[in-house]
Design a protein around this nucleic acid. Sequence first.
DNA 1: TAGATTGTTAATCGATTAACAATC
DNA 2: TAGATTGTTAATCGATTAACAATC
Lengths: 216, 216
Amino acid sequence: MAPRSSYRIQKIPEMTIRRLSLYTRCLVQLEEDGIKTISSQALAERFNLNSAQVRKDLAYFGEFGVRGIGYYVSGLKAELQKILNLDREWQVALVGYGNLGSALFRYKGFARQGFRISAIFDDDPAKAGRAADGVPILPTSDLPREVKARNLQIAIVAVPAESAQAVTDKLVAAGVKGVLNFAPSRIRVGREVRLKNVDLSIELETLSFYLAQGAR
Amino acid sequence: MAPRSSYRIQKIPEMTIRRLSLYTRCLVQLEEDGIKTISSQALAERFNLNSAQVRKDLAYFGEFGVRGIGYYVSGLKAELQKILNLDREWQVALVGYGNLGSALFRYKGFARQGFRISAIFDDDPAKAGRAADGVPILPTSDLPREVKARNLQIAIVAVPAESAQAVTDKLVAAGVKGVLNFAPSRIRVGREVRLKNVDLSIELETLSFYLAQGAR
DNA sequence: TAGATTGTTAATCGATTAACAATC
DNA sequence: TAGATTGTTAATCGATTAACAATC
């Protein structure tokens, strides 16, 4: 099968994608601040990066700059949002509405880039059937139907470690394409689904190493 | 000033430290399961790594294996916990007891490796003065005194973006040595403090890129 | 001893950075 | 035009992996 678009031909480093995401947020801010253009040097400084790295990250996808000028903020922002598929709204399922789940539901960072939690799943009878800020809380038995009906392509998993794998299997069976797992257990999915296990405690554990070394 | 211990002489890659943290958790589990020894190959397979990488990660710190056998699970676990300073209890301050703060407080992963949240700070009059599971909720005006009195060396910041920098400055002034920032804003600290900005939304944003590419 | 697996060196791979011709 | 900054190539750096002598 032919690659879907030109930039699939060469492999893009994952770190490039992560930086692109940072650039995008920065450009959104710059636009709000009324800044019209920015050079690779100025953008790099905000993240302690090398300017060549910024240019190289962008070069994987095209030529977006103007020699002698730099990059037009709103133009580059739009291009990057298109590349990262952030120029649309994603319908997201949140599974598990306990402490962590409700914290993630209220977390401001997600909605900002077009991720919209449009259904919550939780089997606790005290929660299922209710709603949070207008978003319905449903039992997981409704998963297959609702994933299709609401076109839920991404799921955030915030259930206890024991049930994370089982609920993820249900999500995948229902047709979810990407899973972000916040449960403190590694889960596995088939190749057709993109999974990211978010490890909330590894940062604390690595911090510990550096602290007793004397700070940095 | 001379390096504090022999393994400061060569620089240890950050990725090595992160993997060491994974190995440690795995070894804790293996020990519970009654497994006595494990080879670099078997350990590597659990994380989709190369066995040479496991051996190299360990080699930065010493020789822990036995040729022909592998590694003794409980021995290696103990060594790694010592290296990562996880063979002690860290007193942790939690700053901000809103949705995210209370979720992190109840998060099981932290306590498991000896991180003990022993004071919570929040200026909401409805919360300050109370306690959560026996842990006092204090106003941030008490920070300087309490950080010293309770020997709080690490702080988890879970306040709104607007107040993250200000509260971190207070923490650093009070003598905290490591900060884990969950607020959706990048904060800065002086060189004498170790800071990690945890970015909860970057994973979702990068997921978005890969999804429209067709999964993986 | 024979088999297994380590610790370590050397080779490979990939990512970052410097440098500069192209060009606005 | 002169100055600034891009896009891109080549050089550098660092991390991963293969290979194997050492040795339990």
